[in-house]
């Protein structure tokens, strides 16, 4: 599904990367534990998390994750936005809970990693 569709179904705000909303996403992983995110080998992956700090963006950068969705209305800081922009990472903020966001994305056809 396209990132623009994810924005719609999650009632999300685009923090950065608005020029990349046509990108297709195939897999999603939901976690607040970056240690687990760093063990994944999956390509074309989006991260759904309620943890909002700079290390989430660094983790996405190293793991080639091109879209990060912050749930539970967590906000990206200006520094997070800056590093995401430098690395072509799209940041979305959704008011939904993790469970609700994941349910909606699964119903729309996003695949789990395992």
């Amino acid at each position: 599904m396209k990132i623009s569709e994810i924005v719609d179904v999650l009632n999300a705000r685009v923090v950065c990367g608005s020029d990349k909303l046509n990108t297709e996403v195939r897999y999603a992983f939901a976690s607040d534990l970056m240690s687990d995110v760093l063990t994944l080998d999956t390509e074309n992956l989006m991260l759904v998390t309620g943890l909002a700090n700079l290390q989430v963006i660094r983790t996405a950068e190293m793991a080639d994750i091109f879209c990060v969705v912050f749930v539970r209305d967590k906000k990206a800081t200006p520094e997070m936005k800056k590093i995401a922009e430098e690395n072509n990472i799209v940041i979305l903020e959704s008011p939904y809970s993790m469970f609700r966001a994941v349910s909606v994305l699964h119903d729309c056809g996003l695949q789990p990693v395992y």
Partner: peptide, 9 residues
């Protein structure tokens, strides 16, 4: 709290 320390490093 930073998202690490799970013994996976």
């Amino acid at each position: 709290e930073m998202g690490f320390g799970a013994g996976m490093g």
